[in-house]
Design a protein around this nucleic acid. Structure first.
Length: 535
DNA sequence: CTAGGGTTAG
């Protein structure tokens, strides 16, 4: 044997490194087993490490299972699996790997502790974190700023702020992350005042500290405070701008979204990214501001930003909300990488534009191309059927969503069906559907059905539905009002009086109709029945 | 290695 026998051949490792999916990693694994390379700890570790850093969630447990089959895994290999679990949706499994490590020949190092503590932070495991903290202190490992920063975060995130603070205060060396670990924990719990006090007291701050404050204030609904912090930032990065833009978008201040976006373009070196553009496009969509939206589209093209994913969806949605369904379709067609959301945005767009047939055609295309529709897709196609009156098609789709795609219909889906059935005069069939859903959610659907009964003059069904409506919510006016109108149209005045009496007895008041008009920039409000006011 | 943007379609 040559001296190089422990150095693995290059091809399979470089294949492993390039492996993008679980199946490619499995191929590499199979190859290693077949050639005996798997017995080489270095090669096997590489395999685990690459599987663990793969973005696909399922590869983490695969990495774990490979780790368990390695004869004498080193610390590095354990660590990469612990870290992968810490970043996964099942962080608590990291504890299992950590325990296996304690039982094995290789004692955890500072990396193992950092990662397993991060996992504890992810599931707010105070007790687990405390025990691991104790273990770290009893070990021969020297104190480490990474381990301690993560500890501060674990205690903070599990709500033990005093302990977190004590750890922070006793740290021999602190950096900005140490402070941020506690700051972010406060903000995560919505404790903005505590966060503010800490922020003012901090020995050291970086851009992230400021970003935490901006997004923390915004999450608490304090947009003004967020803006104040934002304006006084010494340095802003993309995240800062996005945090501010998102803050305004969140509360529906779309003009401010555009204002901040323009500031970003004018006086900052930071380039907008996908997050920025999606927020800006959605603001344009809500404002119906086609010109601004078109400007963003030009910006995207000019800067060679690929139209895919979130950006594609937002762009299609912007055009359709601004009334340019042809442009929306054009963008959709030109998009190279589509996902479910892109399909959904064009389907919904076509549907609200009354182009139900086109929406259904695109849906067929979507299925044909192998995309899996979700609940939102079905809201789109069902409302498309609703707009065009395609009852059979809607029935088929409604049935399919559960039987073929395993999607449980929600109130929105039932709403589309009940609306359509009512519109077609199929009151009994609609009632059967309403009976499938919980009573408190059924209210709004019953009201819609009552309206349909009225249009079709179905008095008997209307009485039945109105009674159910009144049973469910005797204080709500719409049932009484609709019924009394219905009796009136049939000339049954005694019943009309009876309804009015019941309303008085239950102290139900109909909410007055209201309309507004803007004159010279001042909004005037008129209430039905209030009479003329002359000033 | 540790703290980080509640981005889209209803």
């Amino acid at each position: 044997m040559s001296a190089c026998s422990s150095t693995p051949p290059v091809p399979i490792l470089s294949f492993t490194e390039r492996a993008k999916s679980l199946s490619e990693i499995q191929q590499a694994h199979a190859f290693m087993l077949k050639t005996g390379l798997f017995h080489d700890t270095f090669s096997a570790s590489k395999l685990v490490a690459f599987a663990a850093t793969n973005p696909e969630p399922k590869t983490v447990s695969y990495a774990h299972s490979i780790l368990n089959r390695i004869e004498s895994p080193n610390g590095f290999t354990h660590n990469s699996v612990i870290r992968a679990y810490a970043n996964s949706s099942t962080p608590e499994i990291a504890l299992t790997v950590f325990r296996d490590m304690l039982l094995g020949p290789v004692f955890p190092d500072k990396y193992s502790f950092t990662f397993v503590l991060k996992a504890c932070g992810a599931f707010c495991g105070f007790e687990e974190g405390r025990q691991i903290h104790g273990l770290f202190m009893k070990s021969d490992l020297v104190t480490d700023v990474f381990v301690e920063n993560t500890l501060v975060n674990v205690y903070g995130r599990s709500g033990y702020f005093e302990i977190a603070r004590k750890v922070l205060d006793r740290m021999p060396v602190r950096d900005a992350v140490s402070w941020n670990s506690l700051l972010s924990a406060y903000l995560e719990k919505g404790l903005v005042e505590e966060a503010r006090a800490l922020f003012d007291e901090m020995e050291e701050r970086n851009v992230e500290s400021w970003n935490f404050m901006v997004s923390g204030y915004a999450a608490a609904g304090l947009v003004k405070e967020a803006r104040e912090v934002f304006d006084s930032m010494p340095v802003k990065d993309v995240v800062s701008w996005n945090a501010m833009v998102t803050a305004y978008a969140h509360v529906g201040c779309y003009n401010e979204v555009l204002e901040v976006f323009n500031m970003m373009l004018d006086d900052s070196a930071e380039k907008p990214d996908g997050f920025t553009l999606v927020n800006v496009l959605s603001a344009c969509a809500s404002l119906g501001s086609l010109s601004q939206g078109e400007w963003v589209h030009v910006y995207i093209d000019k800067h060679g930003i690929e139209i895919e994913g979130f950006v594609a969806t937002a762009l299609v949605d912007m055009y359709s909300k601004c009334g340019k369904i042809d442009k929306a379709l054009e963008v959709f067609r030109a998009t190279s990488k589509r996902d479910v959301s892109t399909w959904n945005s064009i389907i919904s767009g076509l549907s609200v534009h009354g182009l139900g047939k086109d929406a259904l055609e695109i849906f067929s295309e979507m299925v044909y191309e192998g995309f899996k529709p979700n609940g939102i897709t079905f809201i789109g196609v069902l409302s498309a059927c609703n707009h065009v009156g395609l009852l059979d098609q809607a029935r088929k789709l409604f049935e399919m969503m559960n039987s073929v795609y395993g999607i449980e219909p929600t109130i929105e889906h039932y709403g589309c069906m009940v609306d359509l059935l009512g519109r077609m005069g199929k009151i009994e069939e609609a009632e059967e559907l309403v009976n499938e859903i919980p009573a408190d959610e059924a209210l709004i659907l019953l009201e819609s059905l009552l309206g349909a009964c009225k249009r079709f003059g179905k008095l008997e069904q209307a009485e039945r539905i109105a009674n159910r409506l009144l049973e469910l919510n005797p204080r709500e006016s719409s049932g009484y009002v609709q019924m009394s109108n219905l009796y009136a149209s049939d000339g049954r005045w005694d019943e009309v009086m009876d309804m009015r009496r019941k309303m008085r007895a239950e102290r139900v008041n109909k909410k007055p109709g209201c309309s507004m008009i803007e004159v010279d920039g001042v909004v005037h409000e008129f209430l039905a029945g209030e009479g003329l006011r002359i000033e």
